[in-house]
């Protein structure tokens, strides 16, 4: 890799999506016709794919040059939007092209389920466990889907919007002790 990071490459217009896409993403947009590409605040590239094709899409991203796995998390849009309740958010980074891609997958249901991408990026392991722990989203194909942050006997999933913050009144003990 060169001393300075390369400047962003020329952007091309994909007619079908009517969006200015980096060349890296144009190929992906052709392969995955049902994926929608959009640009979020500050020009960040966002792709929405169907849950069933997530692993395939992420594999294609990795082959296309997004070599680094950055992040995986979820958002609970409880009563905030029609349609599916959760978004699973995958963050990818291409060092060579200096480009970020955020892959969004909508999941829903009593037991929301998404495919695990640990087969593509092993680093997603702890992140998926965290999302499972805090949101209750199950990742099919994950090797070791157990709670990671809170203790095993905790019931519920704290970051869901219908779970309360869980604050309790504070009590000081031995406050009458005067030295």
């Amino acid at each position: 890799m060169s001393e300075q990071a390369p400047p962003p490459e020329e952007e091309v217009v994909v007619e079908s999506a009517r969006l200015r896409l980096a060349p890296l993403l144009a190929g992906l947009a052709e392969t995955f016709a049902d994926a929608t590409f959009e640009e979020s605040v500050a020009g960040q590239q966002v792709a929405r794919v169907e849950s069933a094709r997530l692993v395939e899409f992420v594999q294609a991203c990795r082959d296309a040059g997004f070599e680094m796995f950055i992040d995986l998390t979820a958002v609970d849009y409880y009563r905030r939007r029609p349609g599916p309740r959760y978004d699973v958010v995958v963050g990818l980074l291409s060092l060579e092209h200096n480009l970020r891609l955020r892959v969004l997958v909508e999941v829903d249901g009593d037991v929301p389920t998404a495919p695990s991408i640990t087969g593509v990026y092993p680093g997603a392991n702890f992140y998926e466990r965290e999302v499972y722990d805090l949101f209750g989203i199950e990742f099919t194909g994950h090797p070791d889907l157990t709670r990671i942050m809170i203790q095993d006997d905790w019931e519920g999933h704290p970051l869901r919007k219908d779970t309360a913050v869980g604050s309790v009144p504070i009590q000081f003990r031995n406050t009458n002790k005067v030295l």
Binding site: M149, I150, P158, T163, A164, V165, G166, S167, V168, P169, I170, Q171, F172, R173, N174
Partner: peptide, 25 residues
């Protein structure tokens, strides 16, 4: 440690005095 501080939520014990006796806060 004394009262949970600003984090009054599901994860924290609201004061270590609920677990062990404390002499000085």
């Amino acid at each position: 440690a004394s009262s949970g501080g600003m984090f009054n939520n599901y994860a924290l014990v609201q004061g270590v005095d609920q677990v062990v006796p404390v002499d000085v806060y």
